[in-house]
C-alpha cells in the first residue's frame, strides 16, 4: 500500500525564463477526493505561475476553511501560505498586503467560505479593491460536511441527495462587479485552456481580481440534476470569447479584427485580448456585463470567460495613501520618525 508521489520527473521538462521547471511549483500530493475539480484549478494555478516565470517566494497563498481552502497545500510548495479562519481569509490577506505590498496575493476560497460565512468579508475586500487574486472554487455544496447545498447552488439544482434547492443562488461575479472589482471572470475547472490565461491575467491585474471557477464535487454534486456537474457545465457553458494573455515583455504579433476583439492593457503593461463571441459584451461596462450574465442565465446557460475588466481602478494602497514600500523594507528612522515628526502631525490637527 502506498500513496506517494515518486521523485522522478520527465527528463526533458521545459524550463521557464528563470530556469525553473513545473516541478519547482509543485506542492504536496492532494488528499481531496479523486477527480475533484479543485485539483485541476490547482494545476492551472501552478501552470500560470510557471508560465509567468514567477519566483515561488514572491507569492503568498491565503485561504479559509473548506475543501477549496486545503488546496494551497497542493501547489506552490515553496511559496508563503496562511490557512486562516473560516470566511476570514480577506482580512488576513488585507493585513498581509498592507504590510508587504510587493508580494503577489493569491486568495483561495470556496463557495461556503465566500458566500456564506465569509460574505461580509468578501463584500468589503472587493469594495476596498485589495490588490489580490481571489479564486473561488465553486462546487455549490459543502463537500467537507457531506454535501449540503451551499449559497451558490442554483435554484432548482439538486445534489446527490436529490432535493432541489429552493433558494436563489448567489452570483459572486455579479456581486463583485456591483461592488467595484476591476477584474471579474468565471471559468470551469475542466477547461484549463480558458482558466490558465485567466489566472495569468488576474495575477497581472492591479487591484481586486475575482475568478469564480465552477469546480464539480465528484462525490456529492456531480449527478444529473446538478447544475455544477461536469456534464451540465460542459453542455451549458458559453464563453464570452477566446482569450489571450500577452505578458508585457512579449511582442504582440497577431492582428485581430477590431470589431470582434477587445484589447486591454493592464497596469504592468501586459495585454489581454478577448476574441468575443458575444458582440453585446463591452468589457469595461458594468451594466453590459451584468446584463450578459443575466441574459445567459435566463437561457439556462453559464457565461464563462472574462466578464468585466477595468485596469485603472485604484487599489487599497492608493485609496488609503499608504507608503509605497513594503514595511519590512523601511528603516527604524522611517518607521519611528521621532518626537518632532509627531509634534508636526499633532500641530496639523489643531
Amino acid at each position: 500500500m502506498s500513496y506517494l508521489r515518486p521523485n522522478f520527473r520527465h527528463p526533458d521538462l521545459k524550463t521557464n525564463e528563470i530556469g525553473y521547471t513545473k516541478a519547482d511549483y509543485e506542492g504536496g500530493l492532494s488528499t481531496l477526493c479523486a477527480g475533484c475539480g479543485h485539483d485541476s484549478i490547482g494545476a492551472s494555478i501552478l501552470q500560470a505561475c510557471f508560465e509567468l516565470s514567477i519566483e515561488p517566494h514572491r507569492v503568498a497563498k491565503l485561504s479559509g476553511i473548506g475543501c477549496s481552502s486545503k488546496t494551497p497545500a497542493y501547489f506552490l510548495g515553496a511559496s508563503h501560505g496562511f490557512n486562516s479562519v473560516h470566511g476570514r481569509m480577506p482580512s488576513v490577506a488585507t493585513g498581509a498586503n498592507l504590510a508587504n505590498r510587493d508580494l503577489i496575493y493569491l486568495g483561495v476560497s470556496g463557495d461556503g467560505d465566500t458566500a456564506s460565512i465569509g460574505m461580509g468579508q468578501f463584500a468589503h475586500v472587493v469594495r476596498r479593491n485589495l490588490n489580490m487574486v481571489y479564486v473561488v472554487m465553486n462546487n455549490g455544496c459543502y463537500g467537507l460536511t457531506k454535501g449540503q447545498d451551499s449559497a451558490t447552488a442554483d435554484k432548482g439544482s439538486a445534489s446527490k441527495k436529490g432535493a432541489p434547492n429552493p433558494y436563489e443562488g448567489i452570483d459572486l461575479c455579479e456581486m463583485a462587479i456591483q461592488l467595484g472589482a476591476g477584474f471579474v471572470a468565471r471559468s470551469f475547472s475542466g477547461d484549463k485552456q480558458q482558466l490558465t490565461p485567466l489566472i495569468k491575467a488576474a495575477m497581472s491585474h492591479q487591484g481586486f481580481a475575482l475568478i469564480d471557477v465552477v469546480s464539480p464535487c465528484v462525490t456529492f454534486n456531480n449527478n444529473a440534476a446538478s447544475t455544477k456537474s461536469y456534464d451540465f457545465v460542459r453542455e451549458h457553458s458559453e464563453a464570452t470569447g477566446t482569450f489571450d494573455f500577452v505578458p508585457m515583455k512579449d511582442e504582440i504579433i497577431t492582428q485581430y479584427n477590431a470589431g470582434d476583439t477587445e484589447e486591454v492593457t493592464l497596469h504592468d503593461g501586459s495585454v489581454v485580448h478577448l476574441h468575443k463571441m458575444s458582440k453585446e459584451l463591452k468589457l469595461n461596462d458594468r451594466s453590459s456585463a451584468m446584463h450578459e450574465i443575466e441574459r445567459y442565465k435566463s437561457k439556462g446557460q453559464i457565461l464563462t470567460g472574462l466578464l468585466y475588466l477595468d485596469p485603472l481602478t485604484p487599489d487599497t494602497h492608493e485609496l488609503l495613501g499608504t507608503t509605497d514600500k513594503a514595511l519590512n523594507s523601511l528603516t527604524e528612522t522611517q518607521l519611528c520618525p521621532g518626537n518632532a515628526a509627531l509634534q508636526s502631525i499633532n500641530e496639523s490637527f489643531r
Binding site: R5, P6, N7, G37, K192, Y230
Partner: peptide, 15 residues
C-alpha cells in the same frame, strides 16, 4: 472518463 483531468494533473512524469 469524465475528463476531470485528475490523472493528467497528478502524473509525476506528465505522460
Amino acid at each position: 472518463c469524465i475528463e476531470c483531468d485528475a490523472c493528467a494533473d497528478v502524473c509525476p512524469t506528465d505522460c
